[in-house]
Amino acid sequence: MKSITRSKPFDEMKKCLGRFDRIFVIGCGTCATMTRTGGIEEVAEMIAHLQEWGKIVTGSTVIPTACDEMTGAAMAENGQAIRDAICILVMSCALGVQKTAQYINKPVIPALDTLFIGIEESPGIFREACDQCGECVLGETAGICPITACHKGLINGPCGGTNNGKCEVDKERDCAWTLIYQLLEKQGRLDLMKKYQPPRNFHVAPRPRLIRVTNHQSPVEGQ
């Protein structure tokens, strides 16, 4: 699993940073390194840009995994440089940004836009694979997720926009439901194409979702 990110446009980032002129930069050694948006090299490039814009960079670190407890430890290690900064610029997915914000009472600015949770299809190609919908239907759709692979997230089969097996929004992209049909056919399970799926439950785990994992049972909702 990878949290897929994209760098924010420089103009937007500049605006976010505004008059903050002393900045500490945090990168992430996991997903953002894979997507080349927040690894060691990108952090170094960012520092050069910030300096070009007349900012003072008080320090930087690339946390091995910015979304877990290591963030706290890494920030403690860089205590002085962080104290010297007016804001923290975080080059990780939004999970790392939020984790950072829990540890410090200073403005935390995201340098990246978090796009989706994806899997690496082939080197450098990341595909959205799951929207965490809370009611997984993969068992009936030949392992293809209709929520994410179909542009409209349809669960009852293809819309009328399918064109030569491609999706109506993009001639380059496969229509998910054409693929599902073909795989179900190969598996001899075409009856599933005719099974009516009732309206989805969009409230399976009410927001904000919170799960407590205990030793002896599967995770339970709530505190």
């Binding site: 009852n156 089969g157 009328g160 064109n163 097996g165």
Partner: peptide
């Protein structure tokens, strides 16, 4: 409802057609 008799491939549309009749 609507149906696309010239869809390519047609079979998935026919399955959807049946589902609409059923619904």
């Amino acid at each position: 409802a609507i149906v696309t008799p010239e869809a390519k491939p047609l079979e998935p549309q026919l399955a959807r057609f049946e589902k609409k009749v059923e619904a």
